[in-house]
């Protein structure tokens, strides 16, 4: 069995469409199991902050390969300590030829970077700690 990120995306879309929370498949040599946790059904960046103060994070909203520079603009680098505006990209997720952005939802500063360049990430993977301004 050989699956690409695109295949995983397709499986996920089918799970969401069918309301499935768990999917397992085996062809006898290899198997895959995918779990759709209702608690993470929304990217973490959109989840309301918990009552107990924890570091906020900026998280992915798609599955693929994480990069910290845009493939067409290598001079842009999001780095720890940078001030970001609302909606500004801090990283990108590349899946095939498509690119989605990992964005700061509000103004703030980037804290610790939590993932490495080139890592395969899923939905809601925290990428940066984040300190909101104001």
């Amino acid at each position: 069995m050989s699956l690409t990120v695109a295949d995983l995306d397709d499986l996920l879309a089918r799970m969401i469409a069918a309301g499935l929370s768990h999917l397992s498949y085996s062809d006898g040599r290899a198997s895959i199991s995918m779990r759709l946790d209702p608690a993470s059904a929304v990217p973490l960046s959109a989840v309301p902050a918990p009552a107990v103060a924890e570091p906020e994070t900026i998280s992915t909203a798609s599955m693929g390969r994480l990069v910290f520079t845009h493939p067409g603009r290598p001079e842009d680098v999001a780095a720890e300590g940078l001030t970001m505006g609302a909606g500004q990209a801090v990283a990108y997720v590349v899946s095939g030829q498509a690119i989605t952005a990992v964005v700061a939802e509000k103004p703030g500063s980037l804290g610790r970077r939590l993932r490495e360049e080139g890592e395969i990430v899923g939905y809601g993977t925290p990428v940066f700690e984040f300190v909101a301004h104001g």
Partner: peptide, 22 residues
């Protein structure tokens, strides 16, 4: 091939974002 792949990959991202509610 690049354009066909692009259309498929971007289309998938659009559909997933809709399904995902984002």
């Amino acid at each position: 091939t690049y354009l066909a792949q692009l259309a498929a990959d971007v289309g998938r991202q659009r559909r997933l974002a809709t399904a995902w509610g984002v």
